[in-house]
């Protein structure tokens, strides 16, 4: 019985998260209409002329995430194919943990790396790049997500039964043709679930963007510009000293609710895709 309560505690956590986000957001939406929240192009909740347009934060989240995925998905997938279909057993046993080490580095260190190493490096090629920019934050976030993509996709590909590969090889296919034509389609749902989970990881990432992308809300799609993401905004407000119960305090819960719904949706999708993949074999 005690054991059951322990297992049930996870439900309580989810309930707590959803409950507190909804409770504080409801207070927020009593003041600000949902339409303004979704359509206003400015986010200046702490100024006298307050605007509450989440889109200018969401655009920052979207741009940094897309930059990260443009790097992480192809590289992660190629590494996964290489490790699963090409690399000899011993090499894979060494390389996989090493790559996974990338995912074990604290995110605040990635933030340091993005701001003080990658940005100066990029400024060498793009002289007009500002100190805070979404490009370097996104790229570093991409590196951070690579082990996630490669590990999950590799697991999916290794789950494909050997006879499918053997059939392909028997037809005279090369390893590349086998990987592309036989293994990847069979592991499709596993790989796409890896992609979706990677995307959800990218939109929820906080420290890299808070350090390297700046804290100024900016409605733009140009990755060379600075812009705050939803997560960076929450950090910015937390660093200040907002009294409990004010509208400024409630904004971070509304922003959090937006973030939570996005990741929740993606995680559910990823989960069901993965389940489908398990059922096939």
């Amino acid at each position: 019985m005690i054991l059951f309560l322990a297992a049930f505690s996870s439900i309580a956590i989810t309930a707590g998260i959803i409950g507190i986000l909804l409770y504080e957001s409801l207070q927020f939406f009593k003041v600000v209409s949902l339409v303004d929240f979704l359509t206003d192009r400015k986010w200046t909740p702490l100024f006298a002329d307050a605007h509450y347009g989440i889109m200018s934060l969401a655009s920052g989240t979207l741009v940094t995430s897309i930059v990260a995925l443009v790097l992480a998905l192809p590289v992660g997938t190629i590494i996964a194919i290489y490790l699963s279909e090409y690399a000899p057993y011993r090499m894979r046993e060494i390389l996989k943990p090493l790559i996974e080490l990338l995912g074990a580095i604290p995110t605040v260190i990635y933030g340091y790396f993005a701001l003080l190493f990658v940005t100066p490096l990029l400024q060498f090629f793009l002289p007009h790049l500002s100190t805070f920019n979404m490009l370097s934050a996104g790229l570093v976030m991409g590196v951070m997500i690579i082990p996630y993509v490669s590990s999950l996709s590799e697991d999916a590909m290794r789950g494909v039964p050997m006879h499918i590969r053997e059939a392909s090889y028997a037809m005279g296919a090369t390893r590349f043709q086998t990987a592309l034509g036989a293994v990847m389609p069979s592991a499709f749902s596993g790989i796409s679930s890896a992609y979706i989970l990677a995307f959800s990881r990218a939109i929820g990432e906080t420290m890299v963007v808070a350090i390297a992308a700046g804290m100024q809300p900016n409605f733009t799609i140009d990755p060379r510009e600075p812009a705050a993401t939803i997560t960076a905004y929450i950090v910015q407000v937390s660093l200040g000293d907002l009294p409990h119960g004010t509208i400024g305090y409630q904004t971070i819960f509304a922003a959090g609710l937006m973030l939570f719904s996005m990741t929740f949706l993606f995680n559910l999708m990823g989960h069901f895709l993965k389940k489908r993949f398990r059922k096939v074999y």
């Binding site: 297992a7 049930f8 996870s10 439900i11 956590i13 989810t14 707590g16 998260i17 507190i20 986000l21 989970l197 959800s200 990881r201 939109i203 929820g204 990432e205 906080t206 997560t231 929450i234 950090v235 937390s238 971070i252 819960f253 959090g256 973030l259 939570f260 990741t263 929740f264 993606f266 995680n267 559910l268 990823g270 989960h271």
Partner: peptide, 19 residues
């Protein structure tokens, strides 16, 4: 509970902070 645990593992850490 199982779906929930999978889901919790994917919730951004900052959301735990808000809660």
């Amino acid at each position: 509970i199982e779906i929930n645990i999978t889901n919790l593992a994917g919730v951004p850490s900052i959301i735990y902070g808000l809660m």
